[in-house]
Simulated scan of single mutants.
Amino acid sequence: MQFSAGLFTIALAGFAALTSAQPHRHSHHGRAHVKPRDMYTAWVTKTVDQNGNPYAAPTPTPSASTHSPQENKAEPTPTSASEFSFASSAAAPTGSPTIPDDLSAGTNANKGVTGIDSDFPNGELDCSTFPSAYGAMPLSWVTKDGWSGIQNGNANDDHIGVCTEGALCSYACPPGYSKAQWPENQPLDGQSRGGLLCKNGKLYRTRDSYTKLCQAGQGTAKVENTLDKMIAFCRTDYPGSENMVVPLSADPGTTTTLTVPSADNSYVWRGNPSSAQYYVNNAGIDLQDGCVWGPPNGGRGNWSPLVVGAGYREGKTWLSISQNNLNSDAANFNIRIEAIGDAQCSQDCRYENGKFSTGDAVGCTVAVTGGVAKFVLY
């Protein structure tokens, strides 16, 4: 599994920690290649290094110094020698996704989203029309027309800000949902592409097997904020440019659905289903300041202190909290994973006063069975 910019395929043994190692190459406004990764998963008991070679003990892999100083991307480190990854050979999970009922909770950027269950009409909307009438959530602080990323061949056109001829134009979906459009034929070099295609001045779906723009997650994770300040959760836009711009605003006193992709309908990279990664900013940083490529050592965006992961397979929800290895500073809040009702968590996983309950310096993971769990911010 050769991959030029590096890739960790993470494995799981028992209930070891889950993380999302995401190597990137990201250069300002004209980046030629943006390397993927949400969490890659395979039910195996080995890990591989960034060249796909098996090895025993994962070690930190800092981002390359060639990144733009404005846009240096974190690569969260695997947290143990045996970690989590979904294998393509494993049986697909059963059951239907739970559609969240809190799409307008708090002051999330998704207020006013409509048509999330409507089929997208191929070739009818002009490329200049952002498809908010079909569930897509515009991000005004990212691009001029609200796209979460614009890929044109090997170029990134976010700085242009509009969906141009031949481009793949990506979009955010509300909390509880994931982007459902990406080309089923992906580049052989391992890069990812995602979004709608602008062709002959009109927008077209790129995934023939799915007619909507957004698909529901498993509905098995929430975020509850007991603090008096909001916290910005910023999901990577993947497959695509992997900007960490897809927002969830955890507002004071609210509980909001966190998207948990199911392995049976998530994007598959070289046989491995993917899950979700969220950069978690310090309390008090708003979405427009937190869900961006942050300045070096700025403590926000890709430099935020914490990373949260979520995925679902075969009746288990896997949730993680990990330290962003670009930022060793403690977050200004605490966070724990807590089962709701009859659900059960495999172990205690919390980040409190800058330390993890498991004693691991990098992070912790739980397997949730029998229902729903929540990330409690306190």
Rank of each mutant, 00 (worst) to 15 (best):
L248N: 08
I160R: 09
F86E: 00
F8S: 08
G363F: 01
S328Y: 10
T236C: 03
D102K: 07
D157Y: 11
S249H: 05
Q22F: 02
T365G: 13
G298A: 10
C198H: 06
K199Y: 11
G370V: 10
H159T: 13
H159W: 07
P252E: 05
T256P: 01
L103M: 13
I337N: 00
Y55F: 15
L139H: 04
T59L: 13
K202Y: 05
V280I: 13
P54V: 13
G217R: 02
A331Y: 03
A216T: 09
P175I: 11
P58T: 06
G315R: 12
A5Q: 03
D208Y: 05
T94A: 12
Q347I: 09
T254M: 05
S322K: 01
D360M: 07
N110E: 13
C291Q: 03
N225R: 08
F130H: 12
A232F: 05
G363H: 06
A109P: 01
E338H: 04
Y171P: 03
A343M: 03
D117T: 15
A136D: 08
S82N: 14
G294R: 04
R193I: 02
V223A: 13
P23N: 09
S170Y: 05
R207T: 06
C127F: 07
A90Q: 05
N332A: 09
R235Y: 00
N325M: 09
H24N: 14
T129S: 14
F233D: 05
D348F: 01
M1Y: 04
K179P: 01
T256D: 11
A221M: 14
N108M: 03
L227V: 02
P100N: 09
S357H: 12
V44S: 08
D264V: 07
Y278Q: 04
D329E: 14
T255E: 11
W303P: 03
P54R: 10
S65G: 12
P121E: 09
D126A: 15
Y279F: 15
S88G: 15
S68T: 14
G271Y: 08
Q2Y: 14
D38C: 08
